[in-house]
Structures are given as structure tokens and as C-alpha cells.
């Protein structure tokens, strides 16, 4: 039963962070909210009993966050020129 409540809470947090990542204006804040979304996905995979998928999701979240931040750096440099 506690697992059901845990999963419901994590899913609600996932929806909140996903919608906030879409709606927020600052790009860096959107990236960080997206990585929070990815972390909640990791938690939900762990509660579902799939550590393999959770590990993959964690690693892909790190890689995508790094790429987003590098692209944001390049964008800022190009815009400020």
C-alpha cells in the first residue's frame, strides 16, 4: 500500500516538473527542471523493480543535461557576439 502512495506522489511530482519545464521562461531553469523530471523517472523505475532501466535513465539524464548546458553556453556566446 505504501508503494502505491509513493508511486502516486512521484508521478504527481513528475507531472509538475514536466509542465513547469515547458512553461518556465529561463532556459537554464528549464534544463534543471528537466533533469529533476529525469530523476523522478529514475525513482519510479526503482519502485517498479527495474534497476537496469533506472540506471540507464540516470545515465541518459546526465548526458542530456550536459549536452543541453553545452548548447546553452554556445547559444549565449553566439547571442552576445
Amino acid at each position: 500500500m505504501i508503494q502505491l502512495y509513493l508511486q502516486t506522489g512521484i508521478l504527481i511530482l513528475m507531472v509538475i516538473t514536466g509542465v513547469a519545464a515547458l512553461l518556465v521562461d529561463d532556459l537554464l531553469a528549464a534544463i534543471i527542471l528537466f533533469s529533476a523530471f529525469s530523476f523522478f523517472a529514475v525513482l519510479i523505475y526503482l519502485t517498479l523493480g527495474a534497476p537496469d532501466v533506472a540506471f540507464t535513465e540516470a545515465v541518459v539524464g546526465v548526458v542530456s543535461t550536459t549536452f543541453f548546458i553545452i548548447a546553452l553556453n554556445g547559444l549565449r556566446r553566439r547571442c552576445s557576439k
Binding site: 534497476p51 537496469d52 540506471f55 540507464t56 545515465v59 541518459v60 546526465v62 548526458v63 550536459t66
Partner: peptide
């Protein structure tokens, strides 16, 4: 848990 894909992503992150 783990395998080729995860190890490759970790190597890639280290190089980056």
C-alpha cells in the same frame, strides 16, 4: 545492473 550502454555513456561523460 549495467552493461554496454551504461558503460559507454559513462565513458562518454568522462571524456566530455
Amino acid at each position: 545492473p549495467g552493461g554496454g550502454f551504461q558503460a559507454g555513456a559513462l565513458f562518454g561523460i568522462a571524456i566530455v
